[in-house]
Nucleic acid binder design. Sequence first.
DNA 1: ACCGATTTGGAAAGCGCTTTCAAAAGTAGC
DNA 2: GCTACTTTTGAAAGCGCTTTCCAAATCGGT
Lengths: 351, 351
Amino acid sequence: MATGRKATGKKAAATSVPDGVVTLEMVAEEAGVSPSTVSRILNGTAKVRESKVRAVRAAISKLQFQPNPVARSLARGRSMSVGVVIQAIDSPFYGEALAAIEKGLFRAGYSVLFLSGHWREDDERRCVEHLLARRVEGIILVTSCLPDAELVRLAKQVPIVLTGRSIEAERSYSMDADSTPGARLATEYLIGQGHRKIAFIAGPADHPDSQQRLNGYKAALANAKIAYSAKLVVPGDYTDGGGHLAMNRLLDSKSEFTAVFAANDQMAYGAMLALHRRGLRVPQNVSVVGFDDLPTSSYIIPPLTTVHRSINELGEAAAEAMIDLLDGRVPVSKQSSATLAIRESTKPLRH
Amino acid sequence: MATGRKATGKKAAATSVPDGVVTLEMVAEEAGVSPSTVSRILNGTAKVRESKVRAVRAAISKLQFQPNPVARSLARGRSMSVGVVIQAIDSPFYGEALAAIEKGLFRAGYSVLFLSGHWREDDERRCVEHLLARRVEGIILVTSCLPDAELVRLAKQVPIVLTGRSIEAERSYSMDADSTPGARLATEYLIGQGHRKIAFIAGPADHPDSQQRLNGYKAALANAKIAYSAKLVVPGDYTDGGGHLAMNRLLDSKSEFTAVFAANDQMAYGAMLALHRRGLRVPQNVSVVGFDDLPTSSYIIPPLTTVHRSINELGEAAAEAMIDLLDGRVPVSKQSSATLAIRESTKPLRH
DNA sequence: ACCGATTTGGAAAGCGCTTTCAAAAGTAGC
DNA sequence: GCTACTTTTGAAAGCGCTTTCCAAATCGGT
């Protein structure tokens, strides 16, 4: 229980499997070759006589040698790590993205240093600084809050990949999975179901992503020759609570609507609750569509009709793009288009 | 767009703010002192004449010097990074924990290398290996799947903090935020509301945490002199889908019950949907209680009564414990007890 | 058996910082 | 002004690898 055995001075008894850390030099000695040879074998940077290779291999496994990545990084001048800054790790959406990113980078031998920016520009800037100081080889910014100019400047220092944003800069890759088509898809679906008065719960106004969703909504309306009414658009903040508030506001404004399109699933949840509280039923009285298709959306009551984009694919693509960038390749953009997961929160409007 | 300017050979023109990387040596030269002095100032490891301190400070800001953490790590033999392995980053629960851990460690100057184990023992083992190879100074295992013996062995190599588990080992800290009391609290609440036939949707059987929840349930029953019935306990897997399945199974088994306690919120969601599908209303026909109090639980319909533990505090505590361990202190355990968030998924049973 | 062309492999110089060691510079005390 | 200490400070030796440079070994040919 107590602290117990304290640091056992560096020079402990030498056993067959050394107590402390095994170095490449020890391996060299054990195998009767020079350190350079061991290094060469480790990295395959030169031909080495088969007999020595075997001896070294044996020594390595006997001593259980593991190259020290720190020393390696220093010598090579490469840290083999990339930074990921995400806004809110506790959102299921970003969590999934992060998981995919981590997986992809891990496979390629990179470690990921992840930090969250909490949607605050300052915090994000600090994260980036920290990552730069840590000498990451690249930075993936998931939905960055930083101004374009700053990102462009950043891209000069280190390869970056951006999601939900788009900038013009070398050694950078923007995966601006444009939300417009998805939003349009959702809105058109509602229109197809006979809805004409469709409210929209928007995301933060300064968010490109959120603007795209608004644009998609508008485009669908325009296409169907339905007049856009600003009164049917209420701002939200991408949280459940925000959706709840927005719906209440909408309801209070007495604007009539038969369907709601929320810019993300979480806001749709909140909106549905608000509706429920006022005795309005989904989808009988109001149809609701979300955006993101969070895992929980299939299990909520009623299961939510929502725009689905494989966030997993997004994450994987981000990781891949970063690896391409790091290897000096130009990432190939492969867009995965949005689909609509039709569930039970929507129904045709009966006249 | 295209690849454009390629690597610009190392020796570029020397400008006032060097193009490449500024080293401590350059600072030393600029300030007219020796590298050791700069290092001493940087680390405050010795007294240095005020005039030199100023000169060095000036040089540092002039050159915009940032010490290279890789070199520093190598020299000091400390990586200033800790590993965090989590099972499913895409779960809101773990996401929040991770965020808190990250925050705490970041403040203390550590970077976090995070990996996810996907609930698979093998994957987790691989993560740990990777972290060890990366020379992290400590590892935080959030709900580890590894067998005790292995953890004990691991603790010999590096300080570890465990959540949701408990092992006996030096230089380790288990934050087995015992779920038993929370589960008991939930069950007792249902009993207090007059329920006698309370079903339990369990988590994975091999999960200590999930066992605790079962135990808490049993204890509350026993305390109220209610016979425990194995038929009212169905296994789940901590996912929404699992809860849905479990509830269907329960319903099919024709066992009677007036309330359900799900071992986590996600399963409660799934269970509620299953109930809904069968035309059973929550809480009118069945009361439902969850465990975890996910952010969404307040916004689901009906808002879920659930056991709340500050997962944020848990994460912070984990980070703090790790820092204590790293500094050679013995972490003080500070349990935060569970509370019940009473919402609208439960109601008194009327006779 | 000898010579030039290849391979192999070791020595040694870093990578950028920390830290030990001992010399240089202050500070008192007489 | 000189001795005896007590700071300050610089030189240099690492930390554990990679990589360049060059000598040694090997090989093919005649």
